[in-house]
Simulated assay, not measured.
Amino acid sequence: MTKSIAEYSGLELLQAMARGELPAPSITVTMPMSLLEADAGFVRFAAKADERHLNPLGGVHGGFAATVLDSVTGCAVHTMLEAGVGYGTVDLTVKMLKPIPRDVPLVAEGKVLHISRTLGVAEGSIRNAEGTLLAHATATCMILRR
């Protein structure tokens, strides 16, 4: 018998997704990103903006970086949660440091800074292949226990 999603801890769920044993969330189609690594309090994603993510001036819209950073910070918090416990972002502060390039592979990482019974705080970054920091975020997530 197959486990339901609610029976996986956050870390187990994300690691199963990274191995391809469970499908990735649909947001990964809209915002091309894939989970490369998940460990307790840490995640690493690959991401790449494309022609679907451009603003009226032809640059990559800031919403691309904000969405990727919301994903890595939230998933980092999720790695610390037991089965059946959810979370939701209540605050996301994003700093755009350099333009996000189009059609260039990027690495996004999320790391937990603090976790309690009701709140998780994490930081995230997006870097290019050379390691240049393009965007940074901090997020607070409410932990949803039943």
Rank of each mutant, 00 (worst) to 15 (best):
S71D: 09
L57R: 14
A18T: 10
A129V: 13
L106P: 06
L22Y: 04
R102F: 00
R19Q: 12
R146L: 05
M17N: 02
L133K: 10
T132K: 14
P25Q: 08
M96S: 10
V94E: 03
L144Q: 13
I143T: 01
G62F: 02
R127Y: 00
L134A: 04
M1G: 15
R117I: 02
A108T: 03
L69A: 11
E37N: 09
S9N: 03
V72T: 04
T140K: 15
L106K: 08
R146N: 07
V29T: 15
T140Y: 01
E51A: 14
A122D: 02
A66I: 05
T28Y: 03
T93F: 01
T138P: 04
I126G: 05
L133N: 07
D39F: 03
T140P: 05
D91T: 12
V112M: 07
I100P: 08
R44C: 03
V85M: 11
G59Y: 07
V90A: 05
S71M: 12
L133W: 01
S26C: 07
D39I: 08
N55T: 08
P99E: 01
L11S: 00
A47M: 09
D50R: 09
E130A: 15
D39C: 11
L11Q: 03
G63V: 09
T67G: 15
R127K: 15
R102G: 02
I5K: 10
G110A: 09
E123F: 02
D50F: 01
D39K: 14
R117G: 08
I143Q: 00
V72F: 00
A24C: 03
H53M: 08
S116V: 05
K111N: 07
F45G: 12
L92I: 14
V29L: 14
Q15N: 09
A49L: 13
D91W: 00
I27T: 11
A47R: 10
L36W: 01
R127M: 08
D39R: 15
A135N: 02
A139C: 14
S9R: 05
T93W: 01
T140F: 01
Y87W: 14
A66E: 02
V104D: 02
G74R: 10
D70T: 09
Y87H: 15
G86H: 04
E130P: 07
K95S: 15
R127C: 10
P105I: 11
M17L: 04
K98T: 02
D50G: 13
S116R: 07
A40F: 06
V72A: 01
V68T: 02
K111L: 09
L106N: 06
L35G: 09
V104R: 11
F64A: 13
I5M: 11
L35C: 10
V104F: 00
